[in-house]
């Protein structure tokens, strides 16, 4: 089992990080407090979704090439590196001896229709094993019809699968002011539907930030929209890294007996950064997918 050492390494790091989390209570406002909040906010919904091509690349070449399309996320608190640099770092820390290269070809503001055309060209040029596609924000703001977006996403996901490239969709961010916005929620639903229909990974960014908002309220904090946006951005690199870790080691559908035990985020430790898991298939077991978002109280 060539992936064995890597899997053990990952599990070891997860447990080590978990143990550290149990013995150390970070002061509020510190980076580790933020990370803990990310972890607490995470919602779990792993389906039998795998990243077979990415896993094969790791096994065979010890190298993972990722193409990032869509708006480039930015890590507000750590300004010396973007999210993708941080994801690379986390993955390379977790998977010893593995080289992860994320090539960022994001064009912020690009709607899915234009991004879908560019993905094909970029896949031809970059030859990635995996695509991170941050999608939805530009379409929500440009009022792209839901049907058009769904057709675009489905067509592109099928094309990527046909070309032996895995894809992880990074959906919309939670915005309290848009929780009741029909157009915004329509776009969100389209992304979830595509994820469910094509059995691909989605980083449940929205649900996680929504959970952060809920947690903060429970603790009597009133977070502004900007605070939430900031918190969500800080968690995204961790979400992505954890989603990848799970997608890489999950067993395909029909082989669940041998799949690693599902990780319950509320109890299981995360990777070294206490990263939460928010990768979902959009399946009914996904709380974020099943439950409609509640508007602010």
């Amino acid at each position: 089992m060539r992936g064995g050492p890597i899997a053990f390494g990952l599990l070891g790091l997860m447990f080590a990080a978990g143990a550290a989390a149990q013995t150390h209570q970070p002061p509020p406002g510190s980076p580790s407090a933020v990370q803990k909040q990310c972890a607490d906010a995470a919602e779990v919904g792993f389906g039998p979704v795998t990243l077979p091509h990415a896993a094969k690349a790791l096994r065979d070449r010890k190298r993972l090439k990722v193409l990032a399309i869509g708006a480039t996320p930015l890590n507000e608190r750590d300004q010396t590196q973007g999210h993708y640099a941080r994801v690379e770092k986390v993955l390379e820390t977790n998977f010893k001896g593995v080289d992860v290269e994320i090539i960022d070809r994001g064009v912020s503001g690009e709607i899915a229709r234009d991004g879908a055309e560019r993905i094909k060209t970029e896949v031809a040029l970059v030859e990635p094993d995996l695509v991170f596609w941050q999608v939805g924000v530009a379409d929500a703001l440009a009022l792209t019809p839901a049907g058009e977006l769904k057709a675009t996403l489905s067509r592109t996901v099928v094309w990527l699968k046909e070309h032996n490239v895995d894809v992880v969709l990074i959906g919309l961010k939670y915005q309290r002011s848009l929780a009741g916005n029909e157009g915004f929620q329509r776009i969100r639903k389209v992304i979830r539907d595509v994820v469910r229909e094509h059995e691909i990974l989605r980083v449940g960014h929205y649900e996680s930030i929504e959970a952060i908002d809920r947690l903060r309220r429970q603790e009597g904090e009133t977070a502004s929209e900007l605070d939430l946006s900031d918190a969500g951005s800080n968690c995204l690199a961790d979400f992505l890294s954890r989603a990848l870790a799970v997608g890489l080691f999950a067993k395909p559908r029909g082989d669940r007996s041998q799949a690693p035990a599902p990780v319950d985020n509320a109890t299981a430790p995360g990777p070294p950064t206490q990263a939460p898991v928010s990768a979902t298939t959009g399946s009914p077991s996904d709380p974020g997918a099943a439950a409609p978002s509640k508007p602010p109280q």
Binding site: E76, S108, G109, K173, S177, E225, S229, D230, S233
Partner: peptide, 15 residues
């Protein structure tokens, strides 16, 4: 709507 702060590559300017 803070999404506007991240639109069209503006995120870096604000954050």
């Amino acid at each position: 709507n803070p999404l506007f702060l991240e639109w069209h590559n503006a995120a870096a300017i604000f954050y």
